[in-house]
Structures are given as C-alpha cells and as structure tokens.
Amino acid sequence: MRIPLFIAILFVLSVPFPSSAHFFPNISSIPPNLLKPNATAWDAFNKLLGCHSGQTVDGLAKIKKYFHYFGYINNSSSNFTDDFDDTLESALKTYQLNFNLNTTGVLDASTIQHLIKPRCGNADVVNGTSTMNSGKPPAGSPTMHTVAHYSFFPGRPRWPANKRDLTYAFAPQNGLTDDIKIVFTHAFDRWSEVTPLTFTEIASYQSADIKIGFFSGDHNDGEPFDGPMGTLAHAFSPPAGHFHLDGEENWVIDGAPIVDGNFFSILSAVDLESVAVHEIGHLLGLGHSSVEDAIMYPTLGAGTRRVELRNDDILGVQELYGSNPNYTGPNPNLTPSQESDTNGAPKFGLSWVHGFLLVVGLFFAAFIEI
C-alpha cells in the first residue's frame, strides 16, 4: 500500500535525526584546536559580588532569568529588571537553602562560585514547590522519609511492576563502537547492582524500552541542543525512556585524571559516564538530591568525575523499586512504595525532560552578558 507523500513527510519530521558524535578515548587525544581553556566565568560576576536587597545593578535581570529558568522565580514575564527586589531575594534564599549554602539573601562569594558550576538543566523548583532541601517537610514528619534528600518527579512515575528487565538500544545511525557502548553498560550496571532492575541491550531501537541517541540542534522533542558546551544531554521520566545526548560535544570515554587534575578542568571535554549515570537516574524516576556527593546532585563541580552511587541515590531508587536480593548495603530489604504506576507518553518540551547543562563560560554568558 502506498503511503501519501504528506504523511511520509510528517513521519520523517517527527523522528529525531541522530548526529555523528565526537568521541575521544581520553583528554590527550582531543585535537588542540578543539580544546578551550577553562573560562574565568568568575570575572563576569565581579560587579555582582555582594549585591543585596534594595540595590539596582546592571546584570541582575540576567540573574533573575537564570533563576526563572530553574524554577526559583515563578513569573511568566520575561521583562525582568535590574532591581534587587523581594522576588530576587526570595529566589536567592531558596537556592542557597537547596544547595546547603548560608541563606544570606546576598550574592556572596560562595553563592556565585556555586552559580557558575556545571549543573543539570531541569528545574529545582516545580510549580512553586522545591524538590530539594527547602521543599522537604521537617524531619520526623509523617510524610517525610527518614532519609532526607532524594526526590522524585511529580506523581512519582516509575516503570511498572511487570517491567523489571528493561531493554535499551542505540540509534543505529550513530554507528557507536563497542568502546562507547560499554560506557553505558557500566552506567546501567551501577543502578542494577542496587535494584531488581536489569538492563539488556537489544538491536531494535524502535522496540527498546530505553532509546539512546546522539543528536544535534533541534531534534523534535522541544529541547534543542545548542552545540558544544551548552546542553549536554536530557532524559525523560519513566516510562518514556528517551535519552538524548548532544553529538557536538567532545565526549571523553576514559575520564581518568591526567597530570595534575581531571579532564573536567578542560572546558570542552565531557565525561560520558558521569552524564550517563545521572541521566539514567532520571530515566528511573529520580529527581534531584541535596547531598553533594550524590549522583543526583544537580551540579558537577570542575575537576570531578562522579559515577559512584551514594547512599542517598540508593535509598531513593530502592524506595521506587525495592532492593536487589544480592545487594548487601544499607536497607537491603526495602520494598517499593505502594503507588500506582504511571502511563507514559513523553511530554515533549515540558518539565518532564531533563538536561545536563554546563553553566560555566559559554552557557552562563547567554544569561549574564556582563
């Protein structure tokens, strides 16, 4: 049967186009012309250092836009002023509380240093409610888990009980080598070690539960990639299973430290496994944590490689799925919460998509421009 041309065109336009990604075995293998020095993002904030309520300083409007992007300012207007008003002070205090900073309401040095760290791109505050520290009930509250800091998406979406062996596949157009695929295998293994979930690679991209691909620019999910050192990756909450990475990044397969420091000190090099482990947490239903060494902590400081699950990550994912019978760590006998499983079409362009944003340098310049 022939398919009408306009239907075929619509189908093609609805399918993301994988890109040819840039992979390097290690930092030393990246051509020098692709490496950029670590940007001194701190310099752009010099005139904002110490800003407080009541002041008017050029650049504060960009700070407001940044907080609006991550949910701290619930305002549909994009016409932000340079006034340090009550709205900005409230947003700043919530941000400081979420990230375990002193809640001074002032743009002090420690806060600015934190603002320029690489971070995950989904909002910390959803519909006016923080999913991190400041959104938690007091310890001992009937609605509070005894361990404080992991979080879930609204409605606690998770994979249904009959889906414990999840399949994943890679976009065939990417032509990924075994060396690259094994990085994702290792990332999945970190989560299967502590849950009853297993992850099996299959050949069929269309039928896989989790679809992994490297894409460039607008790839029809409402969250276009923006080239090197902008949005690194994003993933959807369960059971959508979409996991997209920016093919224009310089992805490093072996993130072992070199010489005096880690490759993260080079602005344009990205550790593939660190991003993969974090985004798989989102694919399983985890939100962000306020525990600084947890995989699900929103920022990834310069000079770090974060791939090991911490207790907070483990407790969070086990609350959704229970424990792997062979796991001998904390609370091995947890069972999943008695919540309904959710159905799951991806909600493209909404808060269900989660991206890993590198805020240092180029990304933050788009907000600040000072």
Results as ranks from 00 to 15, higher is better:
Pro330Ser: 11
Glu273Thr: 06
Pro228Lys: 14
Asn98Met: 01
Lys36Asn: 04
Leu5Tyr: 12
Thr129Tyr: 01
Arg2Leu: 10
Gly105Leu: 03
Gly261Val: 03
Gly344Leu: 08
Pro4Asp: 03
Trp251Gly: 08
Ala161Trp: 00
Phe348Gly: 05
Tyr72Val: 08
Ser110Lys: 12
Pro172Asp: 10
Glu369Ala: 14
Pro16Gln: 01
Ala91Ser: 00
Ser19Asn: 07
Gly285Val: 00
Thr143Ile: 08
Gly71Pro: 04
Ser28Val: 14
Thr177Gln: 15
Lys64Pro: 08
Asp341Ser: 15
Asp209Ile: 10
Thr328Tyr: 08
Asn102Arg: 12
Val194Phe: 09
Ile280Thr: 04
Glu279Asp: 02
Asn122Leu: 03
Ile182Gln: 15
Pro18Ser: 08
Val125His: 03
His244Asp: 10
Ser90Leu: 03
Pro4Trp: 00
Phe153Val: 11
Arg310Gly: 11
Pro332Ile: 13
Ala240Leu: 02
Ser265Cys: 01
Pro118Glu: 08
Lys62Val: 00
Asn220Glu: 13
Pro25Gly: 04
His145Leu: 07
Leu284Ala: 04
Ile370Thr: 07
Gln113Asn: 10
Phe356Asp: 11
His282Thr: 02
Thr40Met: 07
His114Tyr: 14
Gly322Tyr: 10
Ala302Asp: 10
Thr304His: 03
Val359Asp: 03
Ile27Asp: 02
Asn326Thr: 03
Met1His: 09
Ala44Arg: 04
Pro257Leu: 04
Leu309Ala: 03
Met144Cys: 00
Asn102Thr: 14
Asn333Glu: 13
Ala39Gly: 03
Ser110Thr: 13
Ser289Arg: 04
Phe184Lys: 04
Asp189Asn: 14
His242Asp: 15
Glu279Ser: 06
Arg305Ser: 08
Phe99His: 15
His354Ser: 14
Ile112Asn: 06
Thr198Arg: 11
Val270Tyr: 00
Ala39Trp: 05
Pro32Met: 13
Glu319Met: 15
Thr299Ser: 13
Gly281Trp: 11
Ser90Gly: 12
Leu232Gly: 12
Tyr327Thr: 06
Tyr150Met: 09
Asp43Ser: 12
Ala256Gln: 11
Pro196Thr: 14
Asn33Phe: 12
Lys64Ile: 10
Thr131Cys: 12
Leu309Pro: 14
Trp42Ile: 15
Leu10Val: 03
Thr131Trp: 14
Pro224Tyr: 03
Val359Ala: 07
Phe184Ile: 09
Leu358Asp: 12
Thr146Ile: 13
Ser90Asn: 15
Val106Leu: 13
Glu193Tyr: 05
Met229Asp: 12
Pro32Asp: 14
Asp246Gly: 06
Ser77Ile: 01
Phe84Thr: 06
Tyr150Thr: 05
Trp42Leu: 13
Gly355Asn: 01
Ile180Arg: 09
Glu223Ile: 11
Asn46Gln: 14
Lys117Arg: 13
Glu308Gly: 11
Val317Asp: 02
Leu284Met: 04
Ala235Asn: 11
Ser237Gln: 07
Ile112Asp: 00
Leu48Asn: 00
Met296Ile: 05
Gly54Val: 09
Thr111Asp: 03
Arg164Glu: 05
Ser289Ile: 00
Pro4Cys: 04
Thr195Leu: 07
Glu193Cys: 09
Arg310Trp: 06
Asn38Leu: 12
Ala161Cys: 02
Gly175Phe: 09
Ser289Thr: 01
Glu279Gln: 15
Asn333Phe: 15
Glu249Gly: 04
Lys93Asp: 09
Phe264His: 07
Ala171Phe: 12
Ile182Trp: 11
Asn79Glu: 15
Cys120Ala: 15
Asn98Pro: 04
